[in-house]
Amino acid sequence: MLYVYIKTQNALVQRINFNLDSQELPQNILWIDLLHPSAAEIAFISSEFNLEFPTKEEREEIELSAKYWEDNATITINAHFLVRDLKSDEEDRNLIKLRTEIVTFATAKNILFTIRYNEFSTFEEIQARILASPKNFEDGFDIIDKMFEVRVEKDADLLEWIDKEARRLRTSVLEKKDEYSYDEMLKDISSLQELNMRVRDSLFDKRRAMTSLLKSDKIDKDIKQNLTIVLKDLNSLVEFSVSQLNILDNIQTILASQINIEQNKIIKIFTVATVAMMPP
Rank of each mutant, 00 (worst) to 15 (best):
E60H: 15
I111V: 11
V173F: 04
K215W: 00
A73Q: 12
D178F: 06
D89G: 13
A256K: 14
A256S: 15
I75Q: 08
T55P: 09
Q23I: 06
T253P: 00
I229M: 08
D201L: 08
R93Y: 14
L255V: 02
T171Q: 02
K268Y: 08
E60I: 15
R84W: 00
N196M: 03
V150E: 12
A276N: 08
T104H: 09
Q14H: 09
L131T: 12
A209N: 03
K97L: 15
A40E: 09
R208M: 01
Y180H: 12
Q225S: 08
Q9D: 14
H36N: 14
E58D: 10
D188P: 01
F123K: 01
V150Q: 13
L203G: 06
N28M: 02
L30K: 07
E70A: 10
N17R: 01
T211K: 06
L86N: 05
F18D: 03
V272I: 10
Q225M: 06
D21N: 12
T55L: 08
L192G: 03
L95Q: 15
K87T: 05
T55D: 11
R170S: 13
P37S: 08
N264E: 14
A108H: 12
Q244C: 00
E125M: 06
Q27S: 14
I62N: 03
N250W: 02
V150F: 03
I42H: 03
L203I: 09
S191R: 12
E125I: 12
D33K: 08
T76A: 05
W161P: 00
I229W: 06
G140W: 03
E119H: 04
M147C: 03
L131R: 13
I266M: 10
D183S: 15
